[in-house]
Design a protein around this nucleic acid. Structure first.
Length: 478
DNA sequence: TTTTGAGTTGTTCGA
DNA sequence: GTCGAACAACTCAAA
């Protein structure tokens, strides 16, 4: 009789390198069954853009596993049931997975672990997604941090929980069992294929993640501290979708940056700045882990009474990049076309939705969750609440972005706007962020008719700003 | 226990 | 064009 196999349940950890669950399974010496379950009824099932990414990432993982000697079993259905059924089919005696931190998913995993234990199946779980577990980073009095700076200092002192684990090249695969065909899952869009530009922009999968990290370290990080707010050229790491799907781990990133800094290849300012962004991700997970309703309820109680407006036409204009504010529209169209938006522009469009339009942050959160390839429950919810002012260490009430000023400051030549709002491409740069201020002759020359070829602004920013300040005044205190 | 210093990412206005 | 102050008050973390 052959040895009972070990089951590795892959979730958002679609990589072979530095994957603690996979390593442990391999170390126990049993043949390995690799499983991915698509559970479309689970809380936080992937949005449309994430489904596109997931398809390609699973394909990449499957090929990498195949090359190492194992195959990836795909199952669709209720996650715990699917795992149990694969255990029954294979006779697996051990199960390994990397932990999740989103409230309902933690419960699912805990319940399954307990049930399997009772049936005599060994379950071992690991930290594959974070530098430190949320419960490891605590204040001196044992509480969770709610201000970023002391959190970051504490995390930096602790450092990552482990050194990166080496790449796995050989795996003893278990006997084959039936698997769904990835193409049958319908993760890719068709009719219309709105993701056709994604292929040119992204390379999902572990290999793509490593290539992007390398590209970032050799060409981009050298100006990171100064240039990271510029959306008009590649100024950021673009690792977010790879991180969201666990194609690369923060431990690997930490190591790469520290190695580079020690060798003098990465300046300390740039390295530290980038690591602090990785720390923001950890901070978000920490907040979510300690606040199960982060996605649906404001962290600060007084925001329960905030007078958000219902305004479907304005929301629709925002989602389609038709607000009449070029930097906002460029961002929303970049999101639609590529599944991603530069971080600075995310803040601008979020500030516009929340403060200019007074539309509930939950509507913005849901839109981003559906359209971003890097949609991450913790980051997304924590960041929307941060801009709203209802979150941890949040923006003060008077921080209301002026979309024209922000555009001129961070897209000084208007190249970003020209790329994503081509109908404004021929407008001189002094008008590009505020076409309504351009003289008729300049508009004519650029082939623009406001209200026809490009929208008239849907709101007067200075009026909207005052209105927002009044709303924030109404809920202040508490 | 009380106190103290600090807190990612802005804008506007007036000198 | 440039600069500093005002925009509030609160909460957190640590001493």
């Amino acid at each position: 009789m052959s040895q009972a196999p070990a089951l590795v349940w892959f979730r958002n950890d679609l990589r072979l390198e530095d994957n603690p669950a996979l390593h442990a399974a391999r170390a126990c010496g049993a043949p390995v069954v690799a499983l991915y379950v698509l559970d479309e009824n689970l809380s936080y099932a992937p949005g449309a853009a994430s489904r596109w990414w997931l398809h390609h990432s699973l394909k990449s993982l499957s090929e990498a596993l195949e090359k190492a000697g194992a195959s990836l079993v795909l199952r669709r259905g209720e996650s715990a049931e699917s795992v149990k059924s694969v255990i029954a089919e294979t006779g697996a005696s051990h199960v390994f997975w990397n932990r999740r931190y989103e409230g309902p998913l933690v419960d699912t995993d805990k319940a399954l672990k307990a049930e399997l234990h009772e049936q005599g199946v060994d379950v071992a779980t690991f930290n594959g997604a974070l530098l430190r577990e949320p419960w490891e980073v605590k204040t001196k009095t044992g509480g969770a941090y709610s201000v970023f700076t002391p959190f970051w200092k504490a995390l930096r002192n602790l450092g990552p929980a482990r050194d990166p684990l080496p790449k796995i090249r050989k795996i003893k695969g278990a006997d084959a069992i039936s698997s769904d065909h990835l193409d049958d899952w319908g993760l890719l869009p068709y009719a219309p294929n709105w993701a056709k530009e994604f292929d040119g922009v992204w390379k999902p999968g572990e290999k793509g993640a490593q290539e992007q990290l390398k590209r970032f370290l050799t060409h981009i990080i050298e100006d990171y501290a100064d240039q990271r707010d510029r959306p008009d050229f590649e100024s950021t790491s673009r690792l977010s979708p790879h991180l969201a799907f666990g194609e690369i781990s923060p431990v690997q990133i930490w190591r790469a940056i520290h190695t580079g800094m020690a060798a003098g290849a990465i300046g300390p300012n740039n390295g530290e700045k980038f690591l602090s962004e990785i720390a923001w991700r950890e901070f978000s997970y920490n907040i979510l882990f300690n606040n199960l309703t982060l996605v649906s309820q404001p962290l600060r109680q007084n925001f329960k009474d905030f007078p958000w407006r219902e305004d479907e036409p304005a929301f629709k204009a925002w989602t389609r990049g038709m607000t009449g504010f070029p930097i906002v529209d460029a961002g929303m169209r970049q999101l639609w076309r590529t599944g991603w938006m530069h971080n600075r522009v995310r803040m601008i469009v979020a500030s516009f939705l929340l403060k200019d339009l007074l539309i509930d942050w939950r509507k913005g959160e849901a839109w981003f969750r559906d359209t971003l390839v890097d949609a991450d429950i913790a980051n997304n919810a924590a960041s929307w609440q941060w801009v709203a002012g209802s979150g941890a260490d949040a923006a003060p009430y008077f921080r209301i972005f002026n979309p024209v000023t922000q555009g001129e400051k961070f897209d000084p030549d208007g190249d970003y706007v020209r790329c994503y709002v081509p109908e404004l491409a021929d407008l001189p740069k002094k008008f590009i962020h505020a076409p309504w201020t351009a003289p008729v002759s300049a508009l004519e020359k650029a082939g623009i008719t406001l209200g026809k070829t490009y929208p008239i602004p849907i709101i007067d920013h200075s009026v909207a700003r005052k209105r927002a300040l009044r709303c924030y005044d109404a809920i202040k205190g508490g």
